[in-house]
Design a protein around this nucleic acid. Structure first.
Lengths: 212, 212
DNA sequence: TACAGTTGATTGACTGATCAATCAATAAAA
DNA sequence: TTTTATTGATTGATCAGTCAATCAACTGTA
């Protein structure tokens, strides 16, 4: 029962089905049939709209990146101080939907795909650069540029590392504990540059609440 | 020209060929033909010795883990103080051959495979646990158990994160800089617990040499 | 020493399954 | 009628896994 104007709907449904299928399966080894079944259409239709499997995959990564971007943008609006902006960036990374096993699995799979596909690699590099530049913007208001670069690299590595460890589900560490770890790192790195007029916060141990 | 006693040689050659092929290709999507060609034998022989592709892959992961283990053991012998042991652990993780793009790609691919294969997952969990327990052993001699656990988690995440970022070749960060970042993190986390009789080392900023 | 039989090593050729991609056909909407 | 949506059927390629056959090295043993 073909209605007109289905194209955008089908594209969206197929991309979402791809993400779901990859997440469930935990790898990019998903067939067009599986994706199409998940989307409730025939495999032929997926080809009709996307031309090839590779293009459907790329569209899916794009949508993942777009979601992350809008999350980040909305998390950063109305947040003024550099330190609060840093916390907002961290919070977005460990938001429930970003940290869900399915999403983590999909990200991981795309990292692997980046080894082979120049296009996928370019997209992921864009993500890495955006994270880095978001962190740098705020950090450079809090410390000298050299230190800002170093700290940004460290925070980014810690975020990515907590992600990959989440994928194994071995380390008993949830999103709350992950955020705390990253925040602690940031606090500790920034301590030497703290304005002296700020009160308190000079306890030797920076670990606050922990666990989840 | 079949000589007798080839089995161990062939097994070894096939495992090494698997590692090389995965590293070059950047994913586990390698065919038995490619692996066999790389090892200089026929695909049938690979099946003869390993039974299935999956078993060959598992054997390959085992060998990767074994290499890491012997590296770690030899790096830790004759190293006495807890702090030096921590540095040794970090050094092993970023050793040239462990940090080589090919090896990183293989590790990444195995993380993805762990999503699907319970056996692969178990093996990687063993690696994660071993790293964690190595770190914990030394850390608990330097600070209270709660803090040791927290710091171990952070160091492990940072190591894994620097690994995954290395795979994208986007962040211009080499093995030396990676080690420095991790060491800095450790220094900063351990500072509150430093014995007061230790001299010097009280500069506000812990970043020493940097870059690479 | 010669030689028949056994065992391990190795492969080419084949099979069966899977899957991406194509295409011609159908059906509704404009 | 033209356009858009949709699919079943099919094709061609790829691959893991199997199998029977070959070849060389050992093991008696007469």
């Amino acid at each position: 029962m073909p209605r007109i104007g289905m194209e955008p709907l089908r594209r969206k449904a197929l991309v979402e089905a791809t993400l779901r299928t990859i997440g469930q399966q935990g790898s990019l080894d998903v067939t067009m049939s599986e994706i199409a079944r998940e989307a409730g259409v025939s495999p032929a239709l997926a080809h009709h709209y996307f031309g090839s499997k590779q293009q459907l995959l790329v569209a899916t990564i794009r949508s993942l990146l777009a979601r992350l971007r809008t999350d980040a943008v909305s998390a950063l609006e109305n947040v003024e101080t550099p330190r609060e902006r840093l916390s907002a960036i961290i919070r977005v990374s460990f938001q429930a939907d970003q940290f869900a096993p399915e999403t983590v699995a999909a990200w991981l799979a795309f990292y692997v795909e980046a080894q082979r596909s120049e296009e996928v690699r370019r997209l992921l590099v864009i993500y890495a650069r955006r994270l880095r530049s978001n962190l740098l913007d705020s950090l450079e208001r809090l410390c000298p540029p050299d230190d800002a670069a170093r700290i940004a690299e460290g925070v980014a590595a810690m975020i990515d590392g907590l992600y990959i460890r989440q994928s194994l589900r071995s380390a008993p560490i949830g999103s709350t504990a992950s955020m705390t770890l990253t925040e602690d790192y940031l606090d500790l790195q920034l301590r030497p540059f703290l304005r002296q007029d700020a009160p308190g916060t000079l306890a030797p141990n920076s670990s606050h609440r922990r666990g989840e």
